Amino acid sequence: MTVDLDDFLEADRAFHTVLVKVAANPILDSVYGSLRDRQGPQSAGGDAIEMNPG
């Protein structure tokens, strides 16, 4: 299965943002926000990644 890299990274960021918010930990929220902002746009050198669930 091939997944668009931009879609994967967006979903990954949204998923982890929800986990951090649900934890209701202001320190974790601050650290995660800082790391997320520093990470910026990501690139894995391609437009798609190959997913192998097996």
Rank of each mutant, 00 (worst) to 15 (best):
M1Y: 06
M1F: 12
T2K: 14
T2I: 13
T2D: 12
V3T: 01
V3G: 01
D4Q: 07
L5N: 06
L5Q: 12
D6H: 02
D6Q: 15
D7V: 13
D7R: 13
D7G: 01
D7W: 04
F8R: 09
E10A: 10
D12W: 07
R13G: 03
R13W: 12
R13N: 02
R13A: 15
A14Q: 13
F15I: 10
H16E: 09
H16I: 08
H16D: 03
T17N: 07
L19Y: 08
L19R: 07
L19I: 04
L19M: 13
L19E: 06
V20S: 05
K21T: 00
K21S: 06
V22T: 04
A23S: 03
A24Y: 06
A24P: 01
N25M: 01
N25G: 12
N25F: 00
N25C: 05
P26Y: 01
P26M: 02
P26S: 07
I27L: 10
I27F: 05
L28D: 05
L28G: 08
D29W: 01
D29T: 06
V31P: 00
Y32V: 09
Y32H: 14
G33V: 00
S34G: 14
S34C: 14
R36T: 03
D37L: 11
R38K: 11
R38A: 06
R38E: 04
Q39K: 12
G40K: 01
P41L: 13
P41V: 14
Q42R: 13
S43K: 05
A44R: 12
A44L: 11
A44W: 15
G45S: 12
G45V: 07
G46W: 12
I49N: 12
E50Y: 09
E50W: 14
M51R: 10
N52Y: 10
N52C: 04
N52M: 07
N52S: 09
G54Q: 13
G54W: 10
